Simulated assay, not measured.
Amino acid sequence: MTGVNISLDELERDALTEVVNIGVSRAASSLRKMVGRQVLLSVPSVEIVTQAAAAALIGQRESEDLVAVKQEFEGAFSGRALLIFPETKSRELARAVMGDEASAEQVSELESEALAETGNVILNNCLGTMANMLKQSLKMSLPEIIRGTGERLFSETGEPDEGALVLFLYINFSVQDRNIRGYIAMLMDLPSMAALKVLIADFIDRVTEDV
Rank of each mutant, 00 (worst) to 15 (best):
G128S: 06
D100C: 00
R95M: 05
E87G: 08
P86V: 03
M140Q: 03
V19H: 00
T88C: 09
E117R: 13
L165K: 11
L16S: 09
P44W: 12
V175D: 03
T208M: 15
G59Q: 07
G59E: 14
V39L: 01
V39S: 01
I58P: 05
G75S: 15
D189K: 05
L31V: 04
D202W: 00
V39D: 04
L11W: 04
G148N: 03
N172M: 13
Q71P: 11
L57R: 10
I22E: 02
L138S: 00
S108K: 05
Y170H: 10
M1T: 07
N5M: 09
G75I: 12
M98I: 00
V207W: 06
E10T: 10
G75C: 13
R37M: 12
Q106D: 12
Q38F: 12
A131G: 14
V20W: 07
A68L: 03
N125I: 05
L66Y: 03
E74A: 10
D189M: 14
P44F: 08
S25N: 14
K135E: 13
L127R: 04
C126L: 09
D9P: 12
K135C: 09
E18I: 13
L138A: 00
S78K: 07
S45G: 04
A104P: 06
E74M: 11
E62W: 06
S30E: 11
P143I: 04
L134A: 03
N120W: 10
M188D: 15
E113A: 14
G23Y: 10
K33T: 06
A68M: 12
L110V: 06
S42N: 05
I22W: 01
S112E: 05
M133Q: 01
V35E: 11
V67P: 07
Q51G: 06
S112N: 14
N5I: 08
A195F: 07
M34V: 06
E101I: 04
C126D: 02
A53D: 09
F77E: 07
M130I: 01
S7T: 01
G23Q: 06
E72F: 15
A54N: 09
G119I: 02
A102Y: 00
E12R: 05
L138E: 03
E64P: 06
R61Y: 02
L66I: 01
M140I: 15
E72Y: 11
